[in-house]
Design a protein around this nucleic acid. Structure first.
Lengths: 176, 176
DNA sequence: CCAAGAAAGTATACAGCGTATATATACACT
DNA sequence: AGTGTATATATACGCTGTATACTTTCTTGG
């Protein structure tokens, strides 16, 4: 039984479902293949290897981040973006740290990043400052979300913590 | 051949060396055991399981962070601490993300944290603000170091990036 | 002083992993 | 209709963490 139209997208979909339901540890070539009714080795043609499978997961993860309505005021947009990222991290706590292992320059990473760029320009930043501020923001929010999802904050009130931090950082943007 | 004085510390030492030389992927129960001239199963009595071994690595990682001289001005102390954390991340890029997976309340995590507390109090903060600011700082620096070590920044000039970010955050501390 | 029990390390084994290699099958095209 | 090529399969290998059962050594109470 060959030639059944297996695609990379289909494979990543199955992987995503598996990870969402049984966790990252349950994501094995064999398990993904079984979910698709296919031999493990069939996946290799489409995703290269296991790392390629995980790359697909990272794309999906970035795709899950909701891009806020451009009509909203920039401050509100940044807040929604940050909240969206945290929500993604909490929904997929074991997948989330994968974001640290891939460069932030893939196509999938562009959508949310461009949204931040636009917001920062409206906030009055220009040139390199936009790029740098975005990196500062994204690095902080990634660290925060990873800490929260990974359990580094233990039983802390992450919500209050987050409010404190974002208020502090927001003050920064007003100065420049 | 029983009873040869194997200790948890000795095991974690060997694990640390192995990870430093051949990477986290090379850290297997078998490899660690071999390095100690011991059967793999001998480790289990002392470290519980593989996760216990990794916990030992996290302790060592935190222990590697140099605590700056208390005589220095607070600003300089924070800068040295941050630089130390980045250096640890770069020296052990694959171990570093493990920090996100353990609560920041272990004994090993206390040394650097207390150092930040002291610096922040000298900077004029008090009460809850000290705790919150520390968390903001440590979250950012962890995210930054993990991004740098994990390759999320790709080929960026991390040094310049870091300078920009720390200057911005330092401005925050002056206001409060 | 020595037997008994606890403690530490060993031996063996198992299920599951990623994936290299070789093979069979079904389609597209001349 | 036949042939080449893309696609999925079959099989197998070395590796992983660790459960279980065993042996050896040290400690300790009569």
């Amino acid at each position: 039984m060959a030639r059944r139209g297996l695609t990379r997208g289909e494979i990543v979909d199955a992987t995503w479902d598996l990870a969402a339901q049984r966790g990252l540890a349950a994501v094995t070539m064999r398990a993904v293949a079984e979910q698709l009714g296919v031999t493990p080795m069939a996946l290799y043609r489409h995703v290269g290897d296991k790392q390629g499978l995980l790359d697909g997961l990272v794309e999906r993860l970035l795709g899950e981040i909701p891009v806020p309505d451009p009509e909203l005021p920039w401050r509100e947009r940044l807040r929604e973006l940050a909240a969206g990222i945290r929500a993604v991290a909490r929904a997929h706590p074991d997948l989330f740290p994968l974001l640290f292992h891939r460069p932030a320059v893939t196509a999938a990473a562009r959508r949310p990043r461009d949204s931040v760029y636009a917001a920062l320009r409206e906030a009055g930043l220009a040139g390199d400052d936009v790029v740098r501020a975005e990196r500062l923001l994204s690095t902080f929010i990634l660290g925060f979300a990873a800490s929260e999802a990974g359990g580094r904050f233990a039983h802390l009130d992450a919500e209050a913590e987050f409010g404190y931090a974002t208020d502090a950082i927001a003050r920064l943007l007003e100065k420049d």
